[in-house]
């Protein structure tokens, strides 16, 4: 019945188990959902709410805050053209204009064939290859109008399949196995630290008290 496939559901539960609070898994689960559906469909948001003990309104509220989470359909490739300072100086603005013309959609739009969604993005830390473009969070650059057209043609033709995964696939949540968090150890360490801190404070206080006398 759920939106997640059985496989993904297992993975979702694994993610939830990583956190002391279920709702902490909300954002990772959004990424999982995007991997499955490309964007956060309403059934997915509803299932995430159920899994994390929140309401769909809260999932929507959270997801809509982040640019990397999409609550409306997006194309197979999310093309982000950087127009932040380094890229701008290298022609990022012109590149965006070119992209809009070439794809026939304004920034934020999706092409008719549902291949591309064009976005204007802030610095993606690929400044050394300015003007930079990211496609489903994989980097390209520096690009000119021409090489941009070439890139999109190749993407369309499937030449990048395997290199650029469909929208939603992130390495970070692609864990086959959950990570073991040695919670006991972590807690013991914290307790040690707190104790040491308290001891230091007591010593300092005692010193102060002496001074005062």
């Amino acid at each position: 019945m759920g939106a997640f496939s059985p496989d993904m559901r297992v993975r979702a539960e694994g993610l939830i188990a990583l956190y002391p609070e279920r709702r902490s898994a909300l954002i990772p689960l959004c990424h999982l959902a995007q991997q499955e559906a490309g964007y956060l469909t309403r059934p997915f948001m509803e299932e995430i709410a159920e899994l994390t003990g929140t309401t769909p309104a809260e999932v929507y509220g959270t997801a809509s805050f982040y640019d990397m989470l999409h609550t409306e359909p997006v194309g197979k490739y999310l093309v982000g053209v950087c127009t932040n300072i380094a890229c701008l100086l290298q022609g990022g603005g012109d590149l965006l204009e070119h992209a809009e013309r070439a794809l026939g959609v304004p920034a934020g739009g999706t092409t008719e064939d549902d291949m591309f969604t064009l976005e204007e993005v802030e610095c993606v830390a690929h400044c050394d290859k300015a003007p930079a473009v990211q496609v489903n969070y994989r980097f390209f650059g520096p690009l000119t109008g021409e090489s941009f057209d070439d890139l999109t043609a190749k993407l369309r033709a499937g030449e990048y399949d395997g290199v650029v995964p469909p929208h939603g696939t992130l390495i970070r949540v692609q864990r086959e196995n959950g990570i073991e968090v040695p919670l006991d150890e972590v807690l013991a360490e914290r307790r040690e630290m707190d104790k040491a801190k308290a001891a230091r404070k007591a010593a300092a206080d005692a010193a102060k008290a002496k001074e005062g006398n």
């Binding site: 309403r42 509803e46 509220g61 809509s64």
Partner: peptide
């Protein structure tokens, strides 16, 4: 809940 961010923030129900 609040949806969106910055000057696009709005109070919103689930769609």
């Amino acid at each position: 809940d609040f949806a969106g961010r910055g000057d696009n923030s709005e109070v919103s129900t689930f769609p």
